[in-house]
Write a protein that binds this DNA or RNA. Structure first.
Lengths: 356, 356
DNA sequence: CTGAAAGCGCTTACAG
DNA sequence: CTGAAAGCGCTTACAG
């Protein structure tokens, strides 16, 4: 019934007149040394000649190790995730592992369903890029004994191993940059508060301002990391901070009064904000400076090229996968580690000195 | 030794005082109807109570079906692929399948190695988005009896099932648009000739021009679908088509003489071309019109928003996965099908009438 | 260094 | 409708 009927370890054994357990040993790099040079040679030759291909499904059953890891991410179509996934896959690949990936933004239940199916496939661990703060099922998952490592986003309590970017620092870099340019009234387009990044960046934003003796000019929370949400958020920011008289409201079209710069929770939000600003004929950075977060691919070529905070997407994925792999090998401590990566300011053309 | 020790079909059987084969049947939707309502009820209850989770690895061994499919793509970091992969995963997910994905652009041998490993994992089929024209191993793979479906790119001979965009039509749409705007001297930044898309679009470009009684003003072949290659290609185009005298060469900086519009093999190439053009102070579309291909995410927000040809990325992935699934179910004809999807012209701001 | 046996957790003819 | 048995292709103590 096997799809690739192929030849088995028993076929080899029979052909060589040895026992299949001997073949099994000869084939496993770990136990190869137990076998005589002569047998080794003959097995190798036969393997090559017959095109033997080990059946991992069978090995998985007997060892309990599937050499697969489950990866949960909201949506691979969001440009933040491809480089993360690439990092994950490169790390896994080096150890002979495969990723089983699921997009979980389909519906609320998607993560649970995906985990269920992955467990049935007997993945050895989970890499989760879609954590929300206080996800009860995350702890439940951990409780099953599964190895789980969070990427990019942490859960609220933070007692799961994770690899993230230093979001507070990221915001500090953005705010320092704007303050240095002369801005004093700075607004924030925050990411969703139920995501650790949304929360951490918002707090980071406030703290960074505080260090300069400033407080937020305005904050609007976007309900997603998306252009649409960024667009809506920017509109809201413009409305609430608009002066009251019709006359000054007219002026506001080109010169927003409440703030001279805005820090976006991420680049997608910034992109949406940019669209709103263009529709309102508010020049960036002439009338308003805008800075994003993430340095997503090709964001350097939008109009205007976006200043942003670069996070180490690929590294994040790679390190997270390494961490999971280490935990699977029982490396002590790998289950209690959180790795925080340094982001970096990238100044392009969307930030400039405020109008005086 | 099993990682998730979990409970097995035998545990359930013992607990309920029935044979494990009965439990096996009760659990399988396909064979459920063979079982008495009473036993069904008791099995269901026990399953729920004990949190039974079927072991796919075991099922895979006995049925030969792993419920996984291998996906080969050059690099998930190239923005064309996430929507394709998303389509694939959605289709697979609906049938309870997972994708094992490999990025094959690492080195020349990567595809072969990936296929080897996937075969060891006993994937049931392959979805290949990284085909090159005349890939000998593709046929070899097919010869093993594996189900293989090509996505986006075909192999040269074209006797493998595939889901692609109508590349000839895509080029026709682009050329017709430019001609309609008044362009007569149109150049092409071709994709690599060893990729079916590069070849088909180049031919499509030439044929479309021919239908208007025109011939190519210039063609430069890029050695990859990347910004870098597009940048280099554009430079080459500018150089070869530059007039000979120093004086006219100076003019050429703002008004290229050999052509008034260029059709890029894809958006990444167009993006690179745009950078080269900006460096040379050649206004788009003022001095030169530029149109891309693919309508990749966020290309609408570059400077200037790129006119392009939209291909159905997601659909392509989805249909390809469906095709593979159908072939796995032995649906006749699914192995000899090529699905060609219609692209669509998207006019934005990078194309305009030629200078007179 | 090698063999024989048991087992991993399912599925599937074959009987009844 | 249910049971008993064999088997999928490996791995791994246990002997020798």
């Amino acid at each position: 019934m096997a799809r690739y009927p192929g030849i088995t370890i028993s076929d080899l054994a029979q052909r060589l007149g040895v026992h299949k357990s001997t073949v099994s040993r000869a084939i496993d790099p770990q136990r190869r040394h137990l076998i005589s040079a002569d047998v080794l040679r003959r097995v190798d030759a036969a393997v090559r000649k017959l095109g033997y291909r080990p059946n991992r499904a069978a090995a998985a059953l007997s060892t309990g190790r599937s050499r697969t890891v489950g990866v949960l991410l909201p949506d691979i179509t969001n440009p933040v995730f491809p480089p993360i996934l690439r990092g994950i896959e490169d790390a896994l690949d080096a150890e002979g592992y495969f990723a089983l990936v699921a997009n979980t933004s389909r519906h609320d239940d998607a993560p649970r369903v995906a985990v269920e199916r992955m467990l049935a496939q007997r993945v050895e661990g989970f890499l989760i890029a879609s954590a929300t703060r206080d996800d009860p099922w995350l702890d439940a998952l951990r409780a099953t004994g599964a190895v789980v490592v969070l990427v990019n986003r942490t859960s609220g309590d933070g007692h799961l191993p994770a690899v993230i970017s230093d979001d507070m620092l990221g915001m500090r870099l953005a705010v320092d940059h704007l303050v240095e340019l002369g801005h004093r009234r700075i607004a924030h387009l925050a990411g969703p508060a139920w995501l650790s990044t949304g929360m951490a960046r918002r707090i980071g934003f406030e703290q960074a301002l505080q260090q300069h003796g400033l407080s937020p000019a305005a904050i609007a929370e976007c309900n997603a990391y998306s252009r649409e949400a960024g667009h809506a958020g920017m509109l809201q920011l413009l409305k609430t901070s608009a002066p009251q008289t019709a006359r000054s409201r007219a002026r506001q079209r080109s010169i927003p009064r409440g703030f001279s710069a805005v820090v976006a929770g991420n680049d997608l939000i910034a992109l949406g904000a940019l669209q709103a600003l263009q529709q309102h004929n508010i020049a960036v950075p002439g009338a308003l400076s805008l800075i994003g977060h993430n340095d997503m691919p090709f964001i350097d070529q939008v109009n205007p090229p976006l200043s942003t905070v670069r996070i180490q997407h690929y590294e994040m994925g790679f390190r997270a996968a390494r961490l999971a792999l280490e935990a699977l090998q029982g490396l002590p401590g790998s289950n209690e580690t959180t790795i925080v990566l340094r982001p970096q300011l990238v100044v392009r053309a969307s930030t400039g000195p405020p109008m005086r």
